[in-house]
Design a protein around this nucleic acid. Structure first.
Length: 206
DNA sequence: CGTTCGATGCACT
DNA sequence: GTGCATCGAACGT
């Protein structure tokens, strides 16, 4: 107790080796950190979505194992990054035991560290972006943190891309249908911190 | 405010 | 060839 180690509490693989809906909610309030030569950027997770198994039509595992979705079938606690609409990288945390394809999509962060770098990555031309919009939306947050295909399959419990528990207490959690998909829209597998201004989608009514 | 629509790469049929 | 787990500029009200 004379000396206290400042090492952050990185979430262990066992955190992810649980039911995906549980992980999706427990990730709220945790901090996604990316260390690059350009600097450190980090944000508190405020919105997630669960994609669960081959029986979930919206999950990338729905067609069965392919080259792209291979990380979903691997061990929990690994990043699954893919390119969407040819423009945006989306980052997931793989969940559940190996062989059970499932993941949590990280949809929005509240910026914590490296806001200047985030702004530069989001708007090299210098156009103004409100702080709460820097990591609002799954495509925006990967851009702000500099996450690309190079980060696909990285372990989230050590290395350049990690998720930490900085002791933030959970606020009020809300659940609703997933956004941006055209199938299985009836499953309320999106969760977010109510009243957080970094949450994506139409300006909510708590 | 609201809605529409083009950009842009690639996995999968 | 088709269709995306998106974003933001460009309109309309």
């Amino acid at each position: 107790m004379r000396t206290r180690r400042a090492r952050p509490a990185i979430l262990p693989p066992s955190f992810y080796n649980r039911p995906t809906l549980t992980v999706a909610e427990d990730l709220l309030g945790k901090v996604l950190v990316h260390r690059t030569p350009a600097g450190i950027t980090a944000g508190m997770i405020v919105e997630t979505e669960a994609y669960i198994g081959e029986d979930d039509p919206a999950c990338h595992a729905a067609p069965g194992p392919t080259a792209r979705n291979a990380p979903l079938y691997g061990p929990p606690g690994v990043a699954y990054v893919y390119l969407n609409y040819g423009i945006h990288y989306l980052v997931n945390a793989v969940t559940e035991a190996k062989g059970h394809p499932a993941a949590v999509l990280i949809r929005a962060l509240e910026p914590v560290d490296g806001l200047a770098l985030m702004r530069h990555r989001r708007a090299p031309d210098g156009r103004h972006i409100d702080d709460h919009d820097l990591c609002r939306g799954p495509g925006n947050l990967t851009r702000a943190l500099g996450i690309t295909l190079a980060e696909n399959q990285l372990n989230l419990h050590h290395g350049a891309l990690v998720i930490e528990d900085r002791g933030v207490r959970g606020e009020v959690v809300a659940w609703g249908p997933r956004i941006g998909i055209r199938v299985a829209t009836d499953r309320p597998w999106r969760c977010w911190l109510a009243e957080n201004r970094s949450v994506s989608g139409p300006r909510s009514r708590a």
